[in-house]
Computed example of a mutant assay.
Amino acid sequence: MALCSGAAVANVYLAQPLLELFARSLHASPSSTGVVVTCAQLGYATGIMFLVPLGDVRRRKPLLAVLTVATVATLLGAAAAPSLAVLAAATALIGGATVIPQVLVPLAAELAPPERRASIVASIQIGLMTGIIASRVVGGTVGELLGWRAVYLLAAALTAAAGIATINLLPREHARPAATGYGALLASLPRLLATEPVLRHSSLLHALLFGAYTATWTSLVLVLTHEPFHYSSAIAGLFGLLGLAGAIAAPWAGRFIDRRGALPIITAALLLTLLSAGAYALGQTSLAAMIVAIVLANVAVQWSQIANQARIFTALPHARSRANTVYMVAVFLSGALCAALAAACYAAGGWPAVCGLQTLLATAGLLVMPVVRRHDRTQPTPA
């Protein structure tokens, strides 16, 4: 499940190390290529909204098979895109189809014993983070050597292989009676958000933190490939290896949450994000500061994801797929919006403006935390 999740989620982030290559190949400005990243995030949020809730009422194996076929087909379409507009549309479709991880994560939480739920979620998140990192490192390297179209062809092959293997290895499921129609299933999502404070809190907190992460992460390649660094896309992509710090820190966070709860980890993640914004600002002229910033940001986003998902899976055992849908739609809408805001900030004020956006979002998250603590003191949430 972790391997398949990593292969699938990488498709959402393929474009990030390739922006400079898109600009050269498709005769577009570097700042305009950011629309591809935004479309991928919006497509992913749309796919989560309309497909992931089916996990509460349908067997997962057939659902995963359909998603795998659709993802491979759209990746092949992106590889053949003749213009930036067509590529952006194709990446939106890729995002909509490649929601496989968001079907698997609630399933993993369902299969896990309660006392190890956060640790199991952390294991899946290691796969997810590794996939995101690989998309930058492998994508940047392959793109520099063989062109950006080869990156999408390679992603199609890897997605097909991982999807087929995982579908064959998943335990057999019993038939699940669809007591709720599809329309009613979707209609239950806003009601779930309105009636469940834990879901509202966790969705907002991680949306702010993921938005902060996305703002700098999507603009980072533009900094590294221009003055004073002048790295190639391949070298810039190698900076993604620093994100392994988040994967390394994930198991410890999962064990801590299982023993002590999620809120200390969420608070720490927001503080690390705030610190990383300052280090990113210094990183425009200091390679050491840039490295520190990348490590802090990746640890923070990993911790926040594990902690917030553990909260909602424990609070809503009867609706894990739908709760995950609401949560992830909020998160990726924030990612799409913040990617667009980061492009505008970079065009208006350069890298310092992007770092300021990350600072603002992390600070907003810290201001929300007292409300969350008051709620959990009156109505404790086990995870």
Rank of each mutant, 00 (worst) to 15 (best):
Y44R: 02
A89G: 15
Q41W: 11
T33M: 05
M49N: 10
L21G: 04
A78W: 09
P82G: 11
P53V: 05
G43W: 13
A65T: 07
D56W: 05
S32L: 12
V52T: 04
L51G: 05
V35S: 11
P82F: 10
R59P: 01
V36A: 10
R60G: 03
S25C: 05
A70F: 13
A89H: 08
H27W: 13
A81H: 06
T91L: 15
L21M: 08
L26W: 06
Q41V: 01
L26D: 06
M49A: 15
L26K: 12
V35N: 09
R58H: 07
A89Q: 09
L42F: 15
S31K: 08
L87F: 14
K61F: 03
A73G: 05
G34T: 11
A79E: 12
A88F: 13
G47A: 11
G77V: 10
T46V: 13
A78C: 11
A65Q: 08
E20P: 00
P62A: 09
A23F: 11
L87W: 07
L75Q: 11
K61I: 05
L67Q: 10
A65R: 14
S32K: 13
L21Y: 06
I48V: 15
A90L: 14
S25D: 15
R24N: 12
R58L: 03
R60V: 04
T33Y: 07
R59T: 08
G34V: 01
C39W: 15
A90C: 15
C39Q: 12
S31M: 10
V66S: 09
H27M: 06
F22D: 03
S83G: 02
G43P: 04
F50C: 00
T46H: 13
P62S: 01
A45W: 14
S83W: 08
R24G: 05
A80R: 14
V57C: 04
V36I: 12
R60S: 03
A40P: 00
C39E: 01
L75A: 00
K61P: 00
R24H: 12
A79T: 13
L42M: 13
A79L: 12
P82E: 09
Y44Q: 01
A88P: 03
A92T: 05
V35L: 15
K61E: 07
A28S: 14
G43D: 07
A70R: 01
D56E: 06
M49Y: 15
T71N: 08
L84W: 06
T33Q: 14
T33R: 09
A90P: 03
A80I: 10
L64E: 01
G47I: 06
A80E: 12
R58K: 08
